[in-house]
């Protein structure tokens, strides 16, 4: 059985990470910017699982770290979406272009 090669997995991870960076920088909707962060986290999880398999780690440390990344992503989503709801109460709409109160 031929397994997927490590360089292909890392290349896929790099491409997905680049797409996430583009989405975060280019989108003007604050929720879609957060979703782009999720795409980046998924790319990193992919490379972690690939390394765990590549090194054949008996402790499966790559998988454990990916699990912690998922847990912290869940925490980030909770706080981030709470912030967005609080923000939306003061200034309706989800565009980041109108949020210029901290700009001098």
């Amino acid at each position: 059985m031929i397994e997927p090669r490590m360089d292909v997995i890392l290349g896929l991870s790099a491409v997905l990470f680049g797409i996430g960076v583009f989405g975060f920088l280019a989108r003007r909707n604050i929720i879609l910017m957060l979703i782009s962060v999720e795409i980046m986290l998924n790319a990193v999880n992919l490379s972690l699982v690939g390394f765990s398999r590549h090194l054949d780690d008996p402790l499966a440390r790559g998988q454990i770290l990916a699990l912690f990344v998922i847990a912290v992503a869940a925490a980030e989503v909770g706080v981030g979406l709470g912030l967005i709801i609080a923000l939306n109460r003061n200034k309706p709409g989800a565009g980041v272009d109108e949020l210029t109160k901290l700009k001098w």
Partner: peptide
């Protein structure tokens, strides 16, 4: 959907990848 600076976002994503 994109800000006016989206070519820079493409460059940033491509360079990080």
């Amino acid at each position: 959907r994109f800000g006016p600076h989206w070519p820079f976002a493409v460059a940033g994503g491509l360079s990080l990848a």
